[in-house]
Design a protein around this nucleic acid. Structure first.
Length: 311
DNA sequence: AATGGTATTTTGCCTGA
DNA sequence: TCAGGCGAAATACCATT
């Protein structure tokens, strides 16, 4: 008699990315994301309700703190509120005070600073969704821009450029593989404007930005190749695994120094595909990686020589 | 037709006025 | 902020398999 094996509940470390089947899936903030392709696998639901229990109306009033979590993505941090007019009878003095407060409240939403903030955060929103980035990246980009805005770095600079640079910075420091090219493509400004704002922000804000590691491109590039060729799932898996291995070895001997990380990955994919008897030409590997065929050639040659691969 | 080799141009990054 | 120097990458071309 067959006995049913009890399904063990999957945990973070055991889960595999649906998109790239990578096992490097981890929890970041409120989301479970794939470190390789940036796909959001699970966004934890935020409980917007109260965390307390009330037993009577009095408790309700005392404990209520009301409101959704603060967010950096909206110009007023999600606190969109308009002060109302009280129906109750209150003293003349209090009434005047309330009127003044209400006026200030309204005014504060109309300053040019606020408007710029509002506009740019909207632009960030647009870029984030166009690039299919997660909400934690959205938050981060918004936070970066707020910081820059506070320090007055937006003066004399287009808000679109600042928005793009903020999104790019958020990607970079969260190791999400998006290039300046990809960001400026969906942006309304030229690439050099994005780079200009990016550099200015780096300089003035001393942001720690880790270097672009070749690894972050592996899954994306391998997937691009799969989209262009028929491949068995196991071949996809083996190709990615072998590529990772070659990239790691390349880094160990310093072959990545001074080179475009995408080129390092392209060369590794080429060697890996040969080892697996997959008949991809150098241009078929290079094209989806945005790397020239000749660069693939010189790269893989150096890798093969240095790492003793017989290709 | 894919790959290898090489010469030339372009590109991006750094550095120092 | 710009010019210029530098190495990598892209481009162009031809030879070899």
């Amino acid at each position: 008699m067959k006995q049913r094996v009890r399904q063990t509940p999957t945990t973070e470390s055991e889960s595999v990315c649906e998109e790239c089947e990578s096992d490097s899936v981890s929890q970041q903030g409120q989301e479970v994301i794939c470190e390789d392709c940036g796909l959001v696998l699970d966004e934890y639901n935020i409980d917007h309700g109260p965390e307390w229990r009330s037993f009577n109306a009095q408790d309700m009033d005392e404990k209520s703190r009301v409101g959704s979590p603060l967010t950096a993505t909206m110009h007023d941090r999600g606190l969109s509120t308009v002060m109302g007019h009280s129906e109750e009878n209150i003293s003349q003095k209090k009434q005047e005070r309330m009127d003044r407060l209400r006026e200030w409240d309204t005014r504060s939403k109309q300053t040019s600073k606020e408007r710029g903030l509002k506009f740019t955060l909207g632009e960030i929103q647009r870029l984030v969704s166009a690039l299919e980035l997660s909400s934690s990246i959205h938050e981060d980009a918004a936070t970066v821009f707020r910081e820059a805005h506070r320090e007055g770095l937006a003066i004399g600079r287009s808000f679109e450029g600042m928005a793009s640079a903020s999104v790019y910075i958020a990607c970079r420091r969260n190791q999400i593989p998006r290039t300046v090219d990809e960001v400026s493509q969906v942006s309304r400004v030229e690439k050099d404007k994005v780079i200009g704002s990016y550099k200015k922000m780096l300089r003035e804000m001393s942001l720690p930005i880790p270097p672009v590691e070749p690894e972050i491109f592996i899954s994306r590039f391998v997937n691009e190749i799969r989209n262009r060729h028929d491949m068995e799932p196991w071949q996809l898996y083996e190709l990615r695994k072998a590529t990772k291995n070659i990239v790691k070895q390349s880094k160990d001997v310093g072959l990545h120094n001074g080179r475009d990380p995408a080129t390092v990955v392209a060369g590794a994919i080429y060697i890996a595909s040969k080892k697996l008897d997959l008949q991809f030409s150098q241009s078929e590997v290079g094209e989806p990686c945005n790397v020239n065929e000749v660069s693939v050639r010189s790269m893989y040659r150096d890798q093969a020589d240095e790492l003793m691969y017989n290709v």
